[in-house]
Design a protein around this nucleic acid. Structure first.
Lengths: 137, 137
DNA sequence: CATGTGACCTCAAGCTGCTGGAGGGTCAAG
DNA sequence: CTTGACCCTCCAGCAGCTTGAGGTCACATG
């Protein structure tokens, strides 16, 4: 049986976050000690690791809740799990594309400045209008 | 003189957001009509456009506040503005790199699933442990 | 057995950057 | 003068935590 502190150290999830996940219904309320402290089983540790992994991959709490719900029906087809992963992949790809556009513009802005005075600074001129941008946004 | 609605339409910033920026000190409290409604000058519209552009580029409110403060000292050197832009560029690049790793892993997870039953689904196996990952994260 | 200290408990508020609603006042056209 | 679009303030809510206050528990040491 693990205390919440043990669990935190082993999964890298902070203690308040563990309690938060419990409150959000991602983790079932665990057993308690005589003195009302949480005690976790190795299975619960695995589940938290699953949650953390999914969060690190950017899945929303709601999506994780869905996955957990699905995992309670091991004999159903897994199209839904597939869909969740694919949606997340698409979201990540979209985000990368948006960030790449930002990167281009920022690189231009940041290198356009050459230590002059603020009133002439390229950073300000670039931010003040879109005329200097390569594309719309 | 522009009403808040005009300003909103011209800049693409929603009305409550404009009021929020005022509250956060990014926009100075504008003049008011006899009936206490906000009236904006073209200069204030330019400033809001600047803020929006910076936000679109992902700059935090705090960074924008710093830039605005700097723009009040047009004769100082612009190294700080340069630094803010460079930091933001670095942050964006870091984010892109992290997302690319996610993309790789998600692509693998999403394509590893081939419509089997949940108990065998690759999505779950991949999320349950890091053993199937290509790199640490 | 007392005591110290570190880990734990609950509850509530705070964070960022908005967004939306309630309940009311204002403005300009007709 | 009325109508309807617009505006006002204040307050609550979103995600996903994080932090703090004020108190209890577990366990090692004296």
């Amino acid at each position: 049986m693990l205390t919440i502190g043990d669990l935190s150290r082993r999964t890298g999830v902070k203690i308040p976050t563990i309690r938060y996940y419990e409150q959000m219904g991602l983790l079932a309320p665990p057993e308690r000690s005589e003195g009302n402290q949480r005690r976790y089983t190795p299975e619960e540790r695995d589940r938290l690791a699953f949650i953390k992994h999914a969060r690190d991959l950017g899945l929303k709490i709601e999506a994780i809740r869905e996955l957990i719900e699905l995992s309670g029906h091991p004999n159903r087809q897994c199209v839904d799990a597939d869909r969740i992963a694919a949606e997340q992949l698409q979201a990540v790809r979209d985000k990368i594309n948006r960030l790449r556009r930002l990167e281009r513009e920022l690189a231009r802005i940041a290198t356009g400045c050459e230590g002059e005075q603020i009133k002439d600074c390229y950073v300000f001129r670039a931010l003040a209008s879109h005329d200097l941008c390569d594309d719309e946004h």
